[in-house]
């Protein structure tokens, strides 16, 4: 396996210009969509089959309901080291590349939509025209030709950085220290720790507040972790039911007392 590639999105540098969102659409030839009124500058509510990159806007209000601070975060598929979508996929359409990214093979996907509900970040979207699931690929065609994703190239403030994961982790930690000394005491990394939740995210973030401020789960969980426990409980109830059957159908004939 080649060195893991990663994307580091530093929200402290984001100006909400959405150049990344547009660049993504252009490179991936994603068709235009009807705008959606979300109440903020954000468009759309969710990732769609035609928006793989999405700049999220959050308005933090004070007690009087006045806007205190704007938060902007350019969101993307996290290419999780332990990916719910990949584990869920019954067809093997979702696979991990030699760079550690997670892709959906459009020829294999059968449109079951299981991955859509299995992603802890709501990333995968179903394309009703092709009947397949789609999401960000880190611009698979570009990274295999040494170009880096279109969004990172387009970002005018270098809020989106792309490179080898280990290199970016060093950059990210330095940036956190810098921000802390500037007084941003809540600044924190999200998904950088590869021994943390989901084995680390290959698109990790620098946030200026708690993950929940950005609508992110504090402790994202791999849904397939439930399979063992749920299966054991199912087996337990199967044993109980089978035992009930043996008792009900066994014994002397001729009487049917309860």
């Amino acid at each position: 396996m080649a060195r893991t590639l990663a994307m580091f999105t530093d929200v402290s540098l984001c100006i909400g210009c959405r150049a990344c969102q547009v660049a993504c659409k252009q490179w991936n030839q994603l068709a235009p969509e009807e705008p959606e009124w979300t109440g903020t500058y954000q468009n759309h509510h969710h990732f769609t089959d035609k928006s793989y990159r999405l700049v999220r806007f959050f308005e933090e209000t004070d007690d009087k309901g006045q806007i205190k601070q704007w938060h902007m975060m350019s969101d993307v598929c996290k290419h999780c080291a332990q990916a719910g979508c990949l584990e869920a996929c019954p067809t093997g359409a979702i696979y991990r590349t030699e760079y550690g990214t997670v892709n959906i093979n459009q020829d294999i996907c059968n449109g079951c939509r299981y991955c859509v509900s299995a992603c802890p970040f709501g990333v995968v979207a179903f394309n009703h025209d092709t009947g397949t699931a789609t999401k960000c690929t880190f611009c698979n065609d570009r990274i295999h030709n040494g170009l880096g994703p279109a969004c990172a190239k387009a970002c005018p403030t270098q809020s989106i950085k792309f490179g080898f994961r280990d290199d970016l982790a060093v950059v990210a930690k330095k940036r956190i220290d810098e921000l802390k000394t500037l007084g941003y005491k809540d600044a924190q990394l999200y998904g950088e720790d590869s021994s943390g939740d989901l084995g680390g995210l290959n698109a990790f973030f620098l946030l200026l507040g708690k993950p929940s401020v950005y609508g992110l789960p504090e402790k994202p969980k791999l849904p397939q972790r439930n399979v063992v426990v749920d299966s054991l409980l199912s087996i337990g109830s199967a044993l109980v039911v089978a035992l009930g059957g043996l008792v009900a159908f066994r014994g002397r004939g001729g009487q049917g007392g309860a």
Partner: peptide, 16 residues
């Protein structure tokens, strides 16, 4: 139970 849906993600008893 193996999805991220809030009603299911911590449920555990659905198979049973």
């Amino acid at each position: 139970g193996a999805t991220a849906r809030p009603l299911f993600v911590g449920a555990h008893w659905l198979g049973a």
